[in-house]
């Protein structure tokens, strides 16, 4: 059974994230104090046929650089987990 790559893509520090800011304001209106900053990113799950974790990570990294993330404005992080894993 292959592996799952969980790709987190999120705005770089210093890049204005108006959606995160709006969410932070809404949390404040709901009475949640103590949230200094909200940054909103996205999570992309890839079910891969690859079974070798190092190769799976290399594949996902290539996908991030070529399409999944725009490294001018976004950073990304990759987790490799078993298929069906949490």
């Amino acid at each position: 059974m292959g592996l799952k790559a969980r790709v987190h893509v999120y705005p770089k520090p210093g890049v204005l994230d108006p959606q995160g800011r709006a969410i932070g304001q809404a949390l404040g209106h709901l009475g949640f104090t103590g949230v200094a900053e909200v940054r909103q990113g996205k999570l992309i799950e890839l079910s891969l046929s690859e079974t070798d974790p190092a190769k799976a990570r290399a594949q996902a990294d290539e996908m991030c650089r070529r399409l999944l993330a725009n490294t001018v404005i976004e950073n990304y992080a990759i987790e490799i987990v078993p298929q069906g894993g949490r």
Partner: peptide
């Protein structure tokens, strides 16, 4: 054009959303 690397920079969601 920015996504294709023909122009520098990127276009983000408008500041006012």
């Amino acid at each position: 054009l920015t996504e294709a690397g023909l122009l520098p920079g990127a276009l983000l969601p408008n500041a006012g959303l």
